[in-house]
Write a protein that binds this DNA or RNA. Sequence first.
DNA 1: ATATCGTAGATTGTTGACAATCTACAAGAA
DNA 2: TTCTTGTAGATTGTCAACAATCTACGATAT
Lengths: 247, 247
Amino acid sequence: MAIREKEAELTGTPGDALRVLREHSLTTLVQREIERQIVSGDLAAGAKLNEVDFCNELGVSRGPVREAFRMLEQAGLVRTEKNRGVFVRQVSIEEANEIYDVRAALDGLIGRLAATRVKPEQLARLKAIVKRMRAAERTLDADEYFPLNLEFHEVMAEAAGNRALTANYRRVVNELNLYRREMLLRDADNITLSTREHEAVVEAVTKGQADVAERLLFDHVIHSRERLHRALATPAPRARKAPRKAA
Amino acid sequence: MAIREKEAELTGTPGDALRVLREHSLTTLVQREIERQIVSGDLAAGAKLNEVDFCNELGVSRGPVREAFRMLEQAGLVRTEKNRGVFVRQVSIEEANEIYDVRAALDGLIGRLAATRVKPEQLARLKAIVKRMRAAERTLDADEYFPLNLEFHEVMAEAAGNRALTANYRRVVNELNLYRREMLLRDADNITLSTREHEAVVEAVTKGQADVAERLLFDHVIHSRERLHRALATPAPRARKAPRKAA
DNA sequence: ATATCGTAGATTGTTGACAATCTACAAGAA
DNA sequence: TTCTTGTAGATTGTCAACAATCTACGATAT
């Protein structure tokens, strides 16, 4: 389906579609769509991205697709090999470890700033998310837990009230998700422990304890990395929706 | 001058030029050249980047130039307004303050990691840089000090041995330089104080004191921000090479 | 004088075509 | 068989032309 029609559908009325096209170039829309396919897992890590395929799928020419590729390249989501094509970036376990260090530093800062700047509305959202996390914890539903986890940290980043921080944080999390998506949280233990840590963070933020929130969020990231390593050690990943295969 | 000839000159022999063109696309070369013009200050903050002008200047068509624009946009160096063009990004004082917070967090991590991982060769480079800083301090030569400062932190980032950290750090520093370039360090005080802090960092890294290096480098960034604010309060910026004017 | 309108030129957004490179596979030699 | 070698098709890199939009500026009306 052409991306213009897709936007028209998304926005409901044809009039809105025109507005969208006034404000966003095709490059932007293509970039967003490909990014969605990558972070949702429709495109597997290592998969080759064919220019013409995307042109046909989205109903645009190669120019905007190539420009979108360059954006995704800078965002760290794809890797380009000259004359060979672009591929969904593969993050090795060593790279993931390094990225976790960066994320811990950024999340520590997020905790510190959020504790003093969080707005009541944001605090309410955080508490609602944690509440839903406890429900997912009872049913051990990892597919439900995963997006809640993303949303929790997204709201925290917002609450920090620092646009540069939010932008950098998003990029780092996006890269990590290239890796985490492959094996998610497999056992109940991880969901339970992770939820406890989220609750503690919310408590510290509620009380405005900047130092505590900073340390808790920093440790939360380091613990997440350790949980990931333990999950990697377990043998049997359960089947998920099959993503488009790597080259 | 066409960018292909420019590359041929840079690499010395014509054979190397062919190798360069095999490995790098025109987009990459254009992106690098424009980035150089921005960080060097040849293009002032807020200046409009005309596609055709760059095509003529670099001897390429608009395709590679537009792709380079998209990369620079993601790197945070330019801002794009649909149907109006791309402009060198302007960083406000408020944004700079926020970015400094992010940089402090990253630099803290750099100090911590570098203290345990720095290689003898890197340590030697750091000491050589600080030595040259002391010379620049005696002559109060800010134009000499500025690149030394950049190099010092670049080597520190390398010494941390974390590619994800280095990449994020470079992006943040690039954005800050959009701002700092405008007023540099104007008075001798700043150079002296900054050099003292660099020396303290080198000492901590030499001794492998991770916690100390982390705190020193974190504080160094915060102090740099304060020095910037003091410099902003001083009235008379001295003239510099005139950059291409903003729109 | 001021404001509105409209046109011409400049600039960006998008497209399709051409050139260069890579990939897959088959034919032939050792 | 196994290795080269070469050709055809597919894919990427680059370019030039067309379409849409914006900007500058002058004519006209109030």
